[in-house]
Design a protein around this nucleic acid. Structure first.
Lengths: 227, 227
DNA sequence: CAAATTTGTTCGGTGAGCCTAACAATCGGC
DNA sequence: GCCGATTGTTAGGCTCACCGAACAAATTTG
């Protein structure tokens, strides 16, 4: 009935909340049941179920066939999970020598197991970092939402000179590809052209100076900010 | 039906196996259902249930009302969990500045979440340690059982000079008490006397030279080896 | 705007892991 | 060696998280 204390939420519930929150971090459209099911690797009926449970716990609001929205309590939880995830990724890379394409899955599991104490000790050891290895902002311990900035590379104009703000950590294989190309957060580049029907964006990178062609999925994974 | 692959055992199953194994590490008597229930904080019926499931998976042998024994597969799992637990404790102390009384509970949860890769990276970073912060031996990656040595402090004779091999990590409060007293793995001491009906053992420790009285629970938690 | 398709929900079922209560087997004391 | 206490097991229930199948709502399309 009442609102549950923060600590004991099931692993699945935490995943649901984080996913709902993440969906709205970089684009405003609310998430749907089928998209959630696909991302979580479960059936829509399972998600529908789960959403109902979360609504019962006061973590989301949802009328049947209506949109899914986090309550303040739900959002607080979600942001805490994102903080955990991103601090873990940073820790694995900085302290244990993981490469940035390896950390996502490991953090996905660990984020449900680490205590608040451990998170804060990692944070201190890392010197309170503000961005994770993919460039995503790390929310503060106070649960500050940490609004990210940047636009998709696909939304830039030819001739713009920009710096990479973040690269989506969704696909490890793509991250390895970016590593080969020398693309990472903080890399600067100049947009040469968008070829619309080929869905190719050409960018120029320095040191060494070179042109790189990026397909639609690649340039959708890269977020940039003007410099 | 058949023997399950190592990776996907439930958290509860892993706890059961580890506990069965741990019970025989320092004393030969086989563990009972009620002791397991008490240690795991669940009801005996739950354990009875669980044991039946483990038997069905070929991880333990158990006839109703009979003794509980690990199969080779079960033991391999158990030892792997113990390795995880002890490496995690060592990592938390050495890398993240935990004190030895804080690490047990954290490791208890994390051991179910860390990947084999993460364990091996921690092991490498730590320089392949052989004992955890409490003095317990860390099994190798090959699953070598790592037979510990030592006897309970209560089993020594007055006049013996010994070194502490391990201190049971079961009770954090007791560990804090030992820290205050300056007792830790590798501390040397001389047994002064056992006062049988008072259940007190007096030991002499050097630097600073002093006598310490230990009650039954304390001296049962300390394992020593002759020097 | 009605039919067809897509999307979301409900329903019944499964297994793990827990519970309590009732019952069965074993063990210890005399 | 019997009886009572202790210990272990079975039975029946519960929740969570999943599934597939059937159904209902909403959206797209001709």
């Amino acid at each position: 009935m009442g609102v549950m204390p923060v600590s004991d939420l099931s692993s699945a519930a935490q995943d649901y909340l984080k996913l709902i929150w993440s969906a709205t971090e970089w684009s405003p459209a609310p998430i749907t049941v089928s998209v959630m099911a696909e991302r979580l690797g479960v059936r829509p009926s399972t998600v529908s179920d789960g959403i109902k449970r979360l609504a019962g716990q006061g973590l989301v609001t949802h009328a049947p066939y209506g949109s899914i929205e986090l309550t303040d309590a739900g959002r607080a939880h979600a942001v805490a999970m994102v903080r955990r995830h991103r601090l873990l990724e940073t820790f694995l890379v900085d302290v244990l020598g993981y490469s940035w394409d390896e950390v996502h899955d490991e953090a996905e599991v660990l984020e449900h197991a680490v205590s608040d104490t451990l998170i804060e000790r990692m944070d201190r050891k890392l010197g309170h970092p503000t961005r994770d290895p993919h460039g995503d902002p790390i929310p503060g311990a106070d649960g500050r939402p940490s609004l990210p900035e940047g636009t998709r590379l696909t939304a830039t104009a030819a001739g713009d000179t920009v710096a990479i703000t973040r690269i989506s950590d969704a696909d490890p294989q793509m991250l390895r590809y970016f590593t080969e190309l020398g693309l990472a957060p903080d890399t600067r580049l100049t947009v040469r052209e968008h070829r619309p029907y080929a869905d190719v964006t050409t960018v120029r990178v320095h040191e060494p100076e070179r042109d790189i062609d990026l397909g639609a999925s690649a340039s959708d994974a890269i977020w940039v900010v003007a410099v």
